[in-house]
Amino acid sequence: MTETILANATLVLPDATATGAVCLRDGLIHDIDTGAAMPSGALDMQGDMLLPGLIELHTDNLERHIAPRPGVNWPHASAIVAHDAELSSVGITTVFDAMRVGSVVSNTRTNYGKYARQLATELMDLRARDALRISHYLHLRAEVCSETLLEELAEFTADDRVGIVSLMDHTPGERQFRDLDKLKTYVCGKHGLSGDEFADHVASQRSLRQRLGDAHEAGAVAAARRLGAALASHDDTTAAQVATSAGHGATIAEFPTTQEAAAASHERAIAVMMGAPNLIRGGSHSGNVAAADLAEAGLIDIMSSDYVPSALLSAAVVLGDLWDDMARGIATVTDAPARATGLSDRGRIAPGLRADLIRVARIDGTPVLRGTWVRGMRAA
């Protein structure tokens, strides 16, 4: 039996905060005591907040590690281990690693090839060898505007820990990049396209959506059901798009681009997820709705770090301050994402749940991680 007691902590419980201690035993939360007592042998948290480990549903961070520069393919095992260590260092104890499925292999400057099946196999192998610090699931980003989506989805089975399948429709002029000028800035900056090459890219993507989009969308919905994964919409913009997502069975709305779409998602009991960088920066880099405006309207359920892992903790604390309810803010990165993905064994500080916890101090208002425990063992 292994036991650790974390005492003199500000416990962020599901509905409140309280001074107390948590006993971790054999990988689970064994007991919770409120009050300032310091049991013999306990670790003194010195009043710091003790939170459930953060749960990340959508991060591009692994892709950043395997391709740190355009045209650079980093050794996958090293990239996975580095990604895992980085997440533990910012308080993330469960991650749904986003991997694109659906490639464009025709002869264009913006080709992107298949990689998800190989990377997922390598990730799960490292997990089986106990080489990773935190808990990993897969998030398959199903690219509707692609040529190989159905073939790539077919390579995944129920043994692959696929927790989320999201419907990614990146048709130029729609959803995230309704403003073609902003899309041009992004794509030309990334791929070095000329004006004519960008026009060809737009025409090609629109053609793919027209020819294959409906079949790909239906196939991705079917794959989510087959894999037992939560289905997520992505970048819904209108109430009509939300209605379509609801018809597909979506339970998560990733990054709705307008308040109209966020409100429509709430009305249909679809959990709204927004990007932490949007909240921290004060707005969307694509010119879409600001996360702060949705927070003020009570339309945010879940936060995601998206492309900045450290932003997840910061955003939760910002929301706690904004709502004057730290428990509610922290729930957007713990309990709410756990519920949205059916993980009933984590996301709260409660007896019997996984002993995934983080210690957080606030220095001049900024949250600073001072410790991460995964299944009761110190991970960072």
Results as ranks from 00 to 15, higher is better:
7 A>S: 14
12 V>C: 12
12 V>P: 06
16 A>I: 09
18 A>E: 05
19 T>G: 12
20 G>C: 04
26 D>P: 12
29 I>E: 08
39 P>F: 02
40 S>N: 12
44 D>L: 08
44 D>Q: 09
53 G>K: 01
55 I>M: 13
57 L>R: 09
59 T>K: 05
73 N>H: 14
80 I>S: 03
86 E>W: 07
88 S>M: 07
89 S>H: 13
99 M>E: 09
104 V>R: 07
104 V>W: 02
105 V>F: 01
107 N>Y: 05
108 T>F: 03
130 D>R: 10
130 D>E: 11
132 L>N: 06
133 R>Q: 08
134 I>E: 00
134 I>W: 05
135 S>M: 11
135 S>Y: 06
138 L>Q: 04
142 A>L: 10
146 S>C: 04
149 L>V: 04
179 D>G: 13
180 L>E: 12
181 D>I: 08
182 K>Y: 06
188 C>V: 13
190 K>Y: 11
191 H>L: 15
201 H>C: 03
204 S>Y: 13
208 L>W: 07
209 R>E: 03
213 G>Y: 02
214 D>G: 03
216 H>Y: 00
226 R>K: 12
230 A>F: 00
231 L>D: 10
236 D>P: 01
241 Q>R: 11
243 A>P: 01
247 G>L: 08
247 G>V: 10
249 G>V: 06
251 T>Q: 14
253 A>C: 07
279 L>C: 05
280 I>K: 11
290 A>R: 13
292 A>G: 11
301 D>H: 06
302 I>G: 00
304 S>I: 07
304 S>G: 15
307 Y>E: 04
308 V>G: 08
311 A>W: 00
318 V>W: 03
323 W>L: 10
325 D>A: 00
327 A>T: 01
333 V>T: 14
335 D>H: 12
338 A>V: 05
347 G>F: 06
347 G>M: 11
351 P>A: 13
354 R>V: 06
357 L>T: 11
360 V>A: 04
362 R>L: 12
368 V>W: 09
372 T>C: 14
373 W>F: 14
